[in-house]
Amino acid sequence: MLKQDIKKPKNIFRSPKMRSDNLKAWFGSHEALNEISLSIPTFHVTAIIGPSGCGKSTFIRCLNRMHEVVPGTRIQGNVYLDEVDIYGSSINPVNLRKRVGMVFQKPNPFPTMSIRDNVLAGLRLQGMKTYDSDEVVEKALVRAALWDEVKDILKRPGLSLSGGQQQRLCIARALALEPEVLLMDEPCSALDPIASAKIEELIHELRGKYTVVIVTHNMQQAARVSDVTAFFYMGKLVEFDYTEKIFTNPKYKKTEEYVTGRFG
């Protein structure tokens, strides 16, 4: 799917995979998000950009209810996954997180586990038996573009890999659960340019199969990998549009100033 193709059916926002409605979030008394309403198009890559502390990480952590894991936090408003409110009283966040996977800023493979066990960690954490799971392991590692590099060393510790490989292992770990949405919180910020390029390539391949939301500091990266881009500033959503539009012809002055590097 090329970028030109997705522009034709004019509104990819019409049936979004996820949607936030007047979402507010706090750390203690500090308001990190202020009334964010945003639709995340199905099977597309959504980039979230903005200066440090603008709330972009907080926003995606609200999408899989990881925000509330930190003591002293709270939210208001709604977030929908396939039009079901994920903050509804009948929703178990543990089940939600199986459908909405997450990759963190710093690669965090489990240090006591082998490469193979890291891939299966999600299944085991959910109490599933994993005797006969070679297929799961291979599929997840292939999708994370790591299989060829590790297929002969699956028993080695996850930490023995390079930083970039570790991050792809974390992506494989998330993909092994067959999530529908993959949230990535600055997945390349701890990696060198070559490793970053590999992750970007991988994100391209995930497009069309998963709904991806990526937070990034790197505007070139956002321009390269995403279909739509949201610009956050001081906890507010300033502008949300096709990536091309945001980077070439943004509606607001603040957006233009940020994407042209005048602040940030």
Partner: peptide, 27 residues
């Protein structure tokens, strides 16, 4: 045990007990 490991386990759909017994204690 670094909080990032616990977050990793939560994000994979681990509940509190599973996270403690499968990730925190082994680490």
């Amino acid at each position: 045990v670094p909080p990032s490991l616990k977050e990793g386990a939560y994000a994979l759909g681990g509940n509190r007990l599973a996270t403690i017994f499968r990730v925190v204690l082994p680490s």
